[in-house]
């Protein structure tokens, strides 16, 4: 959908119509409002919630779900689903750690991990388009295979002692100001902008540009909107789907490297159920599981809603079990509101 065109020509019908946002903008607006209300609510409930340090914590936690969610958004717009991202995240992180442990420098090592993620995505895409296996089943299979491979390769043991350089991506920050105190301890004057947050922003901008301004993005929407029509119009739907799954796998690989770098340890059991948070982020952000609808900005808002819910409930001392109940209810609520609106 050409958002730029939409806003430019919104004034042609009537002045009132140009003020009325369309359905997908409306959804994002309501999600954004929910986000603001959550922040206000949690700030009142806990004094330490609304602080720079906690803000950075939320940013870090959200960046992993955000990266997974952006990848999933592309797949969901094509009308598919990718249940494997949590496991691919673990396999990619483990793959990076293993080659770095074997002596490869950090940057090529992490690149290798991302390529492993993309390869998992490519297998997903080929199974969906060539073997004609429904995405739910194909990526469920990959979910088990990638997790099994990560556990098998490591003997289910974490890989640690990966060196300081491995931790930079997850723990470093831009513009961090640290002052050495007379007592020899460093004092953080400004914590800086964490690298994961910068990475998330860059990926979000790149993918939003791709979806909105590039042919492949237009074809991703068309494929999910009406696959047969897209095919008859000359869209290579198999190629388009494959692209979406590869991107989802690669972004899961990137998220895996961020997470493992943050822990400075590769955990083969990391990221279990992350796919559900990522799907929830996309759906809360307005992506339709029946395809054709979804935006990067919406998914980002969704990821922050989930990140803040988890963080705020933690800060308010709510148990992890109750948190699951709340997030489950939020996802159902978001889809329900979407359904009501679609029927009008």
């Amino acid at each position: 959908m050409s958002q730029a065109v939409k806003s430019a020509s919104g004034g042609t019908s009537s002045p009132l119509a140009s003020l009325m946002p369309d359905a997908s903008k409306m959804h994002r607006l309501s999600a954004l409002l929910t986000l603001v209300l959550l922040i206000i609510g949690f700030s009142l409930a806990s004094q330490s919630f609304f602080s720079v340090n906690n803000g950075l914590t939320v940013l870090l936690q959200t960046s992993v779900i955000g990266l997974l969610g952006i990848g999933l958004t592309m797949v969901i717009i094509t009308g598919g689903i990718d249940l494997s991202v949590g496991s691919v995240l673990a396999l990619s992180g483990v793959a990076s750690a293993m080659v770095i442990k074997a002596g490869l420098p950090v940057i090529p090592g992490m690149t290798f991990g991302v390529i492993v993620g993309a390869a998992c995505g490519a297998i997903n895409g080929l199974v969906v388009t060539r073997l004609r296996i429904p995405p739910f089943v194909a990526t469920l299979g990959m979910m088990l295979m990638a997790r099994g491979l990560a556990l098998q390769l490591t003997g289910a043991a974490p890989i640690s002692r990966l060196g300081d350089a491995f931790g930079v991506l997850g723990n470093g920050a831009l513009f961090r100001v640290v002052e050495m105190q007379p007592n020899g301890f460093p004092k953080v004057i400004f914590p800086g902008i964490p690298y994961p947050a910068i990475l998330l922003l860059l990926v979000a901008i790149a993918v939003a540009y791709m979806l909105r301004r590039r042919q492949i993005g237009r074809h991703i929407y068309a494929t999910g909107s009406n696959e047969e029509a897209a095919r008859l119009s000359g869209v290579r739907v198999d190629h388009t789907k494959l692209y979406a799954y590869v991107m989802s796998g690669a972004l899961a690989g990137l998220a895996g490297n961020v997470l493992m770098s943050r822990l400075v340890t590769a955990q083969p059991s990391e990221g279990v159920m992350y796919e559900l948070d990522a799907i929830a982020a996309a759906v809360i952000g307005g992506a339709s599981l029946s395809g054709g609808v979804g935006t990067v900005s919406g998914t980002l808002i969704g990821a922050f809603i989930i990140g803040i819910l988890r963080n705020g409930l933690n800060m308010a001392g709510v148990s992890a079990f109750i948190q699951q109940i709340v997030i489950g209810a939020v996802v159902i609520g978001a889809v329900w509101i979407d359904q009501i609106r679609a029927r009008q």
Binding site: M1, S2, A4, R213, Y221
Partner: peptide
């Protein structure tokens, strides 16, 4: 069946699969 992608607007459908592009390969909406 008309073979239209329902979520896209008229120009996107008209040029679907044969999109016009700018010099930089962007969609020329």
């Amino acid at each position: 069946t008309l073979a239209l992608a329902d979520h896209l607007d008229a120009p996107s459908n008209l040029f679907l699969g044969r999109e016009l592009k700018t010099r930089f390969g962007n969609l020329d909406d």
